[in-house]
Simulated assay, not measured.
Amino acid sequence: MLPTRLEIIPTDGIVADVRAQLPAGTTITVTCLPHHGIERTMETATALAGHGYNAVPHLAARSIVSRKQLAGIVRDCGGAGITELFVIGGDKTHSAGPFTSSEGLMREIAEVSGNTMTMGVAGYPEGHPSITDGQLLDSLRAKQELASHIVTQMCFSPTAIAGYSAMLLREGVTLPVWAGVAGAVPRTKLIMLATKIGVGSSLKFITGKAALGKKLLGGGRYQPGELIEDLQALPSPPAGIHLYSFNNL
């Protein structure tokens, strides 16, 4: 069985929901959305850490307003026993402060923390809507000395995950890859979300032409069990499963 971590959105009441449904010790990553801001991410992550969860806050570079704010975040993480971060560029068009990319933010975190923070980074097996494949690869090459692992965007194809991992190895990126998998989500919501984030070939189920489409569109809720089994059966399976729960715990 592959190790699994869950991603949540820091909405009102989510800490109570996690405590009611998931055992202490579970790894929970907490998103950083532009309309929520870093503050809500950190409040949720530190609360979860205080209840015995392995909390991993997401930090979006373009949402950090100053180096002083970042130093405070790193200090708060230390006080809460948080030792891992997930670092992204973020969806904001313009930076709120001095950081424009995840790489720059990671280098600052490493300096401020004295290299005591573990950091994960994002990977895109089916590409990114606004960044070329070459730019994504160059970014991973630059960040891998600072990172501990890659978490992929939501993907529905074990073949795409396997091909992406093999490509990274050929290109000299040796970080472990965690496969991003959608949890048990209502299918209409899943299609909307997947389309928005730019999932490519593995989203052919929208047309109903692929066998995968019939599986996904059957019933009212997508279930990830079969995909996870297929990932586990790969000759070189991913390092783990990163479950996008969308708060459907």
Rank of each mutant, 00 (worst) to 15 (best):
H58A: 11
A60N: 04
K68T: 13
G90C: 09
K92D: 12
I82Y: 08
D76R: 15
H58V: 11
D76F: 03
E84V: 06
G89P: 01
D91A: 10
S63I: 01
A60W: 00
K92E: 09
G78C: 01
G50S: 08
I73L: 14
L59G: 04
L59E: 06
V56S: 10
I73K: 06
H58L: 02
H51N: 12
R67Y: 08
D76S: 15
I82E: 00
A60L: 01
G72E: 15
G72P: 05
V65T: 15
T83L: 06
V56P: 11
L70I: 01
G50M: 12
D91P: 04
A55Y: 07
G79C: 06
D76E: 14
S66Q: 02
T93D: 14
H58Q: 07
P57N: 14
V56K: 03
Y53S: 03
N54S: 08
T83A: 15
G72Y: 05
L70S: 00
G79K: 10
L70N: 00
G81R: 07
C77H: 00
V74N: 10
I88H: 02
L59H: 00
A80D: 08
G78L: 01
A61V: 06
R75C: 04
G50F: 13
R62D: 00
T83M: 09
A60P: 01
G78V: 07
Q69S: 13
I64L: 10
L85Q: 09
L59A: 04
I73T: 07
V65P: 02
A80T: 08
A60Q: 03
I88Q: 07
D76Q: 15
Y53D: 07
